[in-house]
Write a protein that binds this DNA or RNA. Structure first.
Lengths: 201, 201
DNA sequence: AAATAAAAATTGATCAATCAATCATTTTTG
DNA sequence: CAAAAATGATTGATTGATCAATTTTTATTT
């Protein structure tokens, strides 16, 4: 393994440990030495890869966010069918993402809860939601024209849906099963239109 | 004003300042001296009324929780009409409570996000949700029999509704208007049954 | 291949700053 | 005056960041 490869691995280990430790203990109650221990590196090494505790926190938000972004921005590209089917596919996929990324989502909720403390990160997460609302908008409009979605502001629907996702992640913080999450998919769908039949997966 | 009255007032001032300051800055990043300043009392006085920083945090959760409890536990007593009307009244009232108690709800979300850090408080909040689910259960069942609510587990519906409330409080953290909140009431109702007509308030 | 030097990365002891809690002193109350 | 409450300076513990010493890696020369 080349030096560069080794260093990339080490950086990834530190970042992963940071996501886990920050999400469990919050920014202030997380010590650099706890992250170092979790990552299996020395205290000093953390500062070789991240200038400050603050910079490491920012990276722990922004880098996983990039992984998740496509599921919420590439709506027309990723989900297919008529509007109902598209939203159904989308919910299926996005709820799985939320169920899987517990640590990252706990972290992002810490940011959402304190906009003044994390202005840059908060703006980044807000922009993420705005992009989602913008991309889902035409799908909702088509569904409304077809008569299968409720009338009303598509932005409002999108916001209520994102709120439900965040709230679920908070309410079922310790739920490791996917049972709850698959049961909640139909509830999410009901924010868009009247739906009786459940999931067939 | 008697001494006892004065002391009650001072205690209330400290507790109010604690709810505000803890909710804005989190437990660890809140200093006792910041709470004292916000409350207009001296540093030392805080310890006359609350033994430790931890005890003050617990009081800042548990005492406002008692104020809010009735809106979520006295379902049959407070909300009237047929099932649809009852849930409509309930949502109307509970969303107002969530919109009004921003600081307390931010605090409770800090607890929900870290069950291991706050085991006792977390258990208290979980019990609160459980009581709500138990009390709303028969209303949902009646609505299902009347055919105006979706079929499916009433507990799941109640959980999705509480999740939406928490998520809304997180998403609209800085929204001071009540516009968003009144617009979200119909979205909340749609978790229970297919509803087209909006709010007439 | 082996030896050597230069550069880069690792390490944890040390330092400086922060802050919860204490407590001796002062002020207020009855 | 005596008891209670208020006050803020002091103390001890914690921890982010620094840095000098050590180890590892890479490049160069024999």
């Amino acid at each position: 393994m080349s030096r560069e490869e080794k260093m990339m691995k080490k950086r990834a280990a530190i970042l992963g440990a940071a996501v886990k430790t920050y999400s469990e203990n919050g920014f202030a109650e997380t010590t650099i030495s706890a992250i170092a221990k979790e990552a299996g590196v020395s205290f000093g090494s953390v500062f070789t890869y991240f200038a400050t505790k603050e910079v490491l926190f920012e990276a722990a938000i922004l880098e996983p966010l990039e992984e998740i972004k496509p599921y919420f921005s590439e709506i027309e590209e990723r989900y297919s069918g008529n509007p109902i089917e598209m939203v159904r596919n989308m919910i299926d996929c996005q709820l799985d993402v939320f169920a899987r990324n517990k640590d990252f989502l706990r972290l992002s909720q810490q940011v959402l809860a304190r906009p003044d403390r994390y202005p840059v990160l908060f703006a980044e997460l807000s922009a993420f939601v705005d992009v989602f609302a913008e991309r889902i908008y035409p799908v909702i409009e088509r569904g409304q024209k077809e008569g299968c979605f409720y009338e009303g502001s598509p932005v409002l629907m999108a916001q209520s849906y994102i709120s439900l996702l965040n709230g679920l992640r908070l309410t079922f913080i310790d739920d490791h099963t996917n049972l709850i999450w698959s049961n909640m998919k139909i509830q999410a769908l009901r924010l868009f239109g009247p739906v009786t039949e459940g999931w067939e997966s």
